[in-house]
């Protein structure tokens, strides 16, 4: 009987863990931004939340017309226990002979399909 309760307890803990978000959303946001500037379609598709699926094309092609797009000084941190991640740093891109700067900001994240997903800028 004791063994039964132990197994039940373990199963309950495993089930609870499966439903609760785990992992670091800040790292996911960093991966997403990296995928965006490098136009990594596989990573972008996997990390984009379902709410923004129809924006996939836009996200993929955002830096298509510029060259040498890269992240500089990126550091992201989850804001408390909220669904937002604040990032500092910039994306640099070259168009023609001039550099353009895209400062990073605060992003919204959601827990979907057992992992954190990027869901646009936080309002």
């Amino acid at each position: 009987m004791t063994r039964f309760w132990i197994v039940l307890g373990v199963l309950w803990i495993l089930a609870a863990c499966a439903n609760n978000p785990t992992g670091n959303p800040a790292r996911m946001v960093e991966r997403y931004l990296l995928a965006k500037v490098s136009r990594d379609d596989t990573a972008l598709r996997r990390l984009l939340c379902s709410e923004m699926e129809d924006q996939y094309e836009r996200e993929l092609r955002s830096f298509e017309t510029v060259s040498d797009a890269h992240l500089d000084g990126m550091a992201c941190r989850r804001v408390g226990e909220t669904n937002t991640v604040r990032c500092t740093g910039v994306i640099w891109a070259v168009y023609g002979s001039e550099q353009t700067k895209f400062p990073l900001t605060t992003y919204r994240v959601v827990w979907e399909d057992g992992e954190w997903k990027w869901c646009g800028e936080a309002p």
Partner: peptide, 18 residues
């Protein structure tokens, strides 16, 4: 009006001036 702007980025908040 931005260098390199195309029809996709018109609706991309990342291209908006923060």
């Amino acid at each position: 009006v931005q260098r390199g702007l195309h029809s996709w980025t018109v609706f991309d908040p990342m291209w908006a001036d923060p």
